[in-house]
Design a protein around this nucleic acid. Sequence first.
DNA 1: CTCCACTGAGTACGTTGTACGCAATTGCGG
DNA 2: CCGCAATTGCGTACAACGTACTCAGTGGAG
Lengths: 243, 243
Amino acid sequence: MYAISGKDDMTIWTLPERPARGPKPVYSRAQITEAAIRVADAEGLEAATMRRVAAEIGTGAMSLYRYVPSRDDLLELMADRLTGELDLAGVPSGDWRADLTRYADELRAMWRRHPWIGGVRRSLPGLGPNQLVLIERLMGVLDPHVPIDENLGLVALLNGYVEGVVREEIGAAEQLRRSGLSEPEWMARSHAHVDRLVKSGDHPIFTKIVTEARRPHLSRDDQFRHGLRRVLDCVAAALPPAT
Amino acid sequence: MYAISGKDDMTIWTLPERPARGPKPVYSRAQITEAAIRVADAEGLEAATMRRVAAEIGTGAMSLYRYVPSRDDLLELMADRLTGELDLAGVPSGDWRADLTRYADELRAMWRRHPWIGGVRRSLPGLGPNQLVLIERLMGVLDPHVPIDENLGLVALLNGYVEGVVREEIGAAEQLRRSGLSEPEWMARSHAHVDRLVKSGDHPIFTKIVTEARRPHLSRDDQFRHGLRRVLDCVAAALPPAT
DNA sequence: CTCCACTGAGTACGTTGTACGCAATTGCGG
DNA sequence: CCGCAATTGCGTACAACGTACTCAGTGGAG
């Protein structure tokens, strides 16, 4: 009877945005989602509280509950909106390698635009409209070539690679942001600890990683593309030989 | 001056557990970490609040702060403790394929024992003692064969695969647990939504996935091993031909 | 026009992480 | 052996969170 009734529904996606009678709603799910994303981009996911998001669109916290059953559902909406940012027009094109490269690049770019997406805990693949479109396009790339089980596994592999790499890329910056320290200050602090580990001599491979990381190497982009090529080779191996 | 002073330290790992003078501590970091893991295993990560964990060892919330600077740091400790559950004795053994398979199996098993680990947001690879040991052992497997950059990429790939698969395996169960519904009730609800999508006919590939998932197929273990083999083939391709 | 489903939004509650204070305990310097 | 100071366990208190409940006001259906 109150707000949007989540009574019989498991996800937001089954709740219609607007019923019939009554005054015209002033806001909208899309507007609220947008505002939440704006806040998260600027100040991190933890800053995107109900009150803060409401203030962003110039209203009080409780007004949001006319549009969204809970904060978790709002996060779901945000995730779907972000999925919508992936530009996969024309996919599948027939060239699976190009398609998957395109997807990987888009996904990485999106993560870098919205690093907080890694903090949105989703226990199941989302069923929002944008996410459903993504499934059709992305899985459609390999669907003609492999059984669906195999396809799922390969896509999971690709996603895993991209996510892993991006998390690593983002990690340091995110931690820096949350520490609230200045960059040089933060660098000094963390280097101090790492240096102690290195000097101890007990961690030769860790040392190797660290010293390697400190000297110039391939650009992030090149590293990403290089690893991606390997993943795609791996995909190719799972395809029938004629493709 | 109060509690454990996190003044100059970026991570817990640089904070000594115990200084000199004063009364003997009744508890310990290890004990608190253990209690927190027990709670998280039984009731989920969100149940592992400071008060709940403290109650678990029979004290008040504020006592924990004599051992741990913050809840985030406690999560860090928990993650490291879980890493310690991975049994990699004898790795690297010289047989890289066996080693990586062993690691993948151990990692998957650990995630299934503690599904909440997916909710611990770590922005950087941990630097706890167990995590450092893991780095040495795991990266040591491929270190003789490939440059460190390549090694990092391959390990990221492997981790990504395992994590992706396990998240999928865990997802439904986790969501069921959080909904608080009975299993048949939950099944009915989610099937209703999915059925609607399927019946709409707009999502052929989604439909394929769903119908496929409903009929019996390979066991989870076999699926995992199958995909893993493919990942390892991919790794093999990146190694010098003689190995 | 009347009705009532709906709106925006304030107030209030339970729960969280944790800052602070204080009495009790211990090891160390004398 | 004696105190001093460091450090303990832990209660109280607070700010911030998600959100249940409330109510006056709005506007389309009858």
